[in-house]
């Protein structure tokens, strides 16, 4: 039985130690995996704001993840080919600068979240799950069949985008960039939770009527949370595309939505560090089980099932409460 604070510290320290060890022993692929964990954790942190704080079960966060990815892909591919993105009425050029790309990714995915949220939040419960899934699917099919940016082939970027003062091609430096973003996202998520907005949102999750009674508009609260959530996941998408130097419609697929949700639930819904714990566990499992059998998805599925049925509260919940009782 350990306190959640201690566990959070241990998780962060653990990730850093793994990377440090990999750096010293010259194991760049381990650093790549750790970077992937950090990025997917950012995506999970984004979803966790909608899911844990707002109680909004979105099965369509792949839409934002993909939009962030394509923001990076489209801007960088234009910079790569020296073809402006748009010539009239104003000249817009591509860019290979990470901060600019991040900004665009944040804005574009926030805008998409605003539109999808405004429509989907008219409903709740099971409707909401299905509608968010369907909208993400719409982006997926569009990305596959729209020929301008590679369709199903996706877009390859030959050199990773730049961050002022860093060599992002060096695995450890890119890891630190992503780790920095993760820490920022965690801080945002943590502050949000204790802010008046977060408290009102939490109250809206438990009782819509109570929030209305004190003069707050629950729809607006939820929409704001959904937009923040989508924007953070979109940022993760841009980072993920930069990690692979590649973006494709699979980032939009419903499996991606499912996996982001799995990180959050594996780690523990609503726990600040849940997404990091979940992403780390998922990547570790994928890495280990993939070597056991061609049919490793069976084991993964069985494990997930076990977590849902018998380990409520996810990894963080189990470790902090010291019991794995089934209620």
């Amino acid at each position: 039985m350990i306190s959640e604070k201690l566990l959070n510290g241990a998780l962060i320290a653990g990730l850093l130690l793994v990377v440090l060890h990999a750096h010293l022993t010259d194991a760049p692929f381990t650093i790549t995996l750790a970077t992937k964990v950090a990025i997917l954790a950012v995506a999970g942190v984004g979803l966790n704001i909608a899911l844990g704080l707002g109680g909004l079960v979105s099965l369509g966060h792949a839409a934002f993840f993909g939009i962030g990815g394509y923001a990076m892909g489209i801007l960088a591919s234009h910079a790569q080919s020296y073809v402006p993105l748009m010539q009239s009425p104003v000249l817009i050029e591509g860019t290979k600068s990470m901060p600019v790309i991040w900004l665009v990714a944040l804005l574009a995915s926030a805008l998409a979240a605003l539109l999808i949220g405004a429509l989907s939040l008219r409903t709740s419960g099971v409707y909401f799950i299905m509608i968010t899934l369907a909208f993400a699917q719409m982006f997926y099919y569009f990305a596959i069949s729209w020929p301008a940016y590679g369709g199903e082939d996706g877009l390859s970027i030959y050199v990773r985008n730049g961050f002022p003062g860093l060599n992002t091609l060096d695995p450890i430096q890119y890891f630190l960039v992503c780790f920095g973003v993760l820490v920022l996202a965690l801080l945002v998520s943590f502050r949000l939770r204790t802010s008046p907005f977060g408290l009102a949102l939490n109250a809206a999750r438990q009782s819509t009527a109570r929030v209305q009674a004190i003069g707050q508009n629950p729809f607006r609260l939820r929409l704001t949370a959904f937009v923040i959530s989508g924007a953070i996941t979109g940022l993760a998408g841009a980072l993920f595309a930069d990690l692979n130097r590649f973006v494709s419609p699979t980032m939009f697929s419903w499996q991606t939505s499912g996996e982001i949700m799995v990180f959050v639930i594996l780690g523990g819904v609503g726990r600040v560090m849940g997404p990091l714990a979940g992403a780390a566990l998922f990547i570790l499992l994928e890495h280990l089980l993939g070597g056991v059998s061609d049919y490793w998805h069976i084991y993964l599925g069985a494990l997930l099932l076990g977590v849902v049925l018998f380990a409520r509260g996810g990894l963080v919940g189990v470790l902090t409460e010291g019991r794995s009782g089934d209620d």
């Binding site: 490793w296 069976i298 599925g301 494990l303 997930l304 849902v308």
Partner: peptide
């Protein structure tokens, strides 16, 4: 899962898809 929230239902049935698909392929 009946008494659980939709989130648990989504994850558990997502897990069932993985199991069913790969078991069928097996």
């Amino acid at each position: 899962l009946y008494t659980r929230d939709h989130l648990d239902q989504v994850l558990a049935t997502f897990a069932l898809i993985l199991i069913f698909s790969e078991a069928t392929r097996w």
